[in-house]
Each structure stands twice: as structure tokens, then as C-alpha cells.
Design a protein around this nucleic acid. Structure first.
Lengths: 177, 177
DNA sequence: GAAAGATTGTTGTTGACGACAACAATTGTT
DNA sequence: AACAATTGTTGTCGTCAACAACAATCTTTC
């Protein structure tokens, strides 16, 4: 407990979660943090969609990153390439708006993808401020592989929550896409 | 376009999204990025649960932060206080594990909450390494107000996706809580 | 057609966040 | 007593959302 200044000394002893879990008394090999999580009440949190969605989203991203780890593609990179592939010639602003990412952030994302030879910024024929985004030939080939791996990831999702639940979820959240 | 080095000059002209959207020709007051988003295809992205979940989660967090803006409480702070309130005496490790947050991060979260007089770190009676976390009297009062505001936020969620859909979603994702 | 305003890409900053690594103090195990 | 594991803490790194500022360019307005 290195360097913690104030440590109150009034320990109003009442039935605390630490004692309730009966850790110390019984010599079961459970450390303090090894209490079964379902022993710890979530209270109001269990009724909040945001909490469940956050946990789920973290799990999904971790699986996506792991499944596409061999090709070193993260969810946002995949989404950018997919939208450019389906809409060649889009400007950076249009892509950023469509995907709900900051245009400032897209700059760095495209720097990386361009450096890897997957995306190219052509100058727009009609607006010299903007870039017309395209996949390179290599980018199109790579995206096809990414898609196959992403489909594998999607199967992991279906395995986790159930095939019908996944489709129900897609339907419920269709308005946010 | 300040300071962009390479700008390829080979503009293989084919039906680009920029032209497809017919922006320039017609004098409609739409800027380049003001294309209706449903005109930009999402392609494979539409079938990915992760994309929808991410967009939804961003929306939820924004609404939560806005709705609880007056009391300056963010989702993670609310979750920490809720769990401590429901399980007084928990250690930091136990809280971190239960909520799926790094124990290193919880340190700073608790620093802030303790500084605001909402949470107190008492020394554990059984393990001098760990802290027994408790809400202060003021913390309990404050949490009751947070809960009311959080319930209002939850009504926004229900308004957005529908009451039944919200409950279906909670049910689908119950395993992740 | 010139002036004023808006848009686009870029750079930079701030803060929340997840993941890791290292460390001292303490506890558990052998 | 020696060694390993746990707990809280500090720090770093990379991702991400939210802003703000800027130059170049386009659009609108007079």
C-alpha cells in the first residue's frame, strides 16, 4: 500500500462483503479477488443496457482483433476499408461521417492504410480540397481475405450469444448503423 | 491539403461514389459530406454485430454523460459506486474483477471519488495489503440521486430502441454482466 | 467579381480507457 | 526461513472521442 496518505481508522463494522464471502475462515484456495463474481451483486447495474452493451462490445472487439491478428487489422481499419471498397471515390469527410469517426482520426488511419499500400488518396476531379479514396488492387485482394476472417469472427459471436439472438440483436440495432 | 507528400496522378476514372451522388451538377445546397448517409453503402459492415454494438454503445454513453452531466458522473464512476454500495467492504481487486476494469485504472477512479468525499478506503481488518471500500454517508445520498438520473437515461434508451427491444437486449446480453 | 463565410484535410491537445510492466508491502505456501 | 503469490500503486504505450486551430479551397452574398 505504498504511499497512500490518509487511511481512515473508523471501521464501522457491519456485515461487509469481504466477511460475507467467508474467505479467510475456510482454507479454500481462493484469494481475496477470487470470489465468484456472481457472489458480488451488481444491483442497479444489472438493469442498465449500457453496462451490458459495453461488456459485450469489449468482448467482440477482443475477439475481432484476435481473429484478424494474423493480418493486423483492427475493427476501425476494417470498417474504413469496407466503406471505401463499396463506395470508391468518397471523400474523407464522407467516410468519417458515415462511420461516425472524427475526421482528424481518419487522417491517421488512412496514413497507415496508405503506407501499407491498401488505400490510395487520389485528388478529387471536382474539388481540390478533398481526396477521392480508393482501394488499391492489393487493397481489394486483402479486403477479400479480411472479409473471410471477419466472417469467422462473426461465427464466434453467434456461438457466444446464439444464432437467433445475434440476428435479433442486428435487427434491434439496425437504426444505429 | 497542407503538407501531403505523394498525390498519385493516375485517376482511373470509373463510376465513383462522388459522382454517383450527383452533388456538383445539381445546385442543391449539400456539401460534399452532406450526402445522405443511406446513400453510402455499408456493405459487409451491415452484417457485423460488432459495428452496430459499437455505434449503439457510443450513443448510450453520450446520453448517459449528458443526462448525468449536472452531477459530473461518468458510466464507469457510476458502476464503481453502485457495486461498492451493494457490496460494502470489497477490495479494489474484487471491484476491478467484477466490473472488468484494470486495477491500475481503478486506483485513479477511486482517487477521484475519494477526493469528492463519495467513497472511502478503509483498511481491511484481515489483510493489511488491501482496502475495504465503502460509500460515505454523502456517497450514499449522492448515489441515490445518480440512480434517479440513470433511470432517466435508461428511459431515453427505451425511447430510442423500444421498450420490448431494450428488455430483449438485456436478456440476450445477460451473460456478459 | 470581390468579400465574407463555409468546407476539407491536417496537426495538435486533452482526457477516458484497456493492456502491460515494474515495484514495495504483505500474505500464503513449502 | 525461503520462495511464490497477491494487493495497491506508479508508470508507459496505444486506441479512441472531442476540440481547437490552421491553410487551401470552394460557396455564397453583395
Amino acid at each position: 500500500m505504498a504511499g497512500n496518505s490518509q487511511m481512515p481508522r473508523t471501521a464501522k463494522s457491519r456485515a461487509s462483503a469481504q466477511l460475507r464471502s467467508g474467505r479467510k475462515q475456510a482454507g479454500n484456495g481462493r484469494s481475496q479477488s477470487d470470489v465468484m463474481d456472481d457472489e458480488i451483486a451488481l444491483d442497479a447495474l444489472a438493469g442498465h443496457a449500457g453496462y451490458a452493451v459495453r461488456r459485450f462490445q469489449i468482448w467482440i472487439f477482443q475477439d475481432f482483433i484476435r481473429t484478424l491478428g494474423a493480418v493486423d487489422i483492427r475493427p476501425t481499419q476494417y470498417s474504413v476499408m469496407t466503406v471505401i471498397g463499396a463506395n470508391p471515390g468518397l471523400s474523407q469527410m464522407a467516410v468519417a461521417k458515415r462511420l461516425g469517426i472524427e475526421r482528424a482520426r481518419l487522417v491517421h488511419l488512412l496514413d497507415s492504410l496508405e503506407q501499407r499500400g491498401l488505400v490510395s488518396r487520389l485528388r478529387s476531379a471536382t474539388d481540390r480540397r478533398s481526396h477521392a479514396l480508393h482501394l488499391t488492387a492489393r487493397g481489394r485482394t486483402a479486403l477479400a481475405q479480411f472479409r473471410r476472417l471477419a466472417a469467422e469472427h462473426e461465427r464466434h459471436v453467434a456461438d457466444k450469444i446464439g444464432k437467433e439472438n445475434r440476428e435479433r440483436l442486428l435487427q434491434i440495432l439496425a437504426a444505429f448503423t
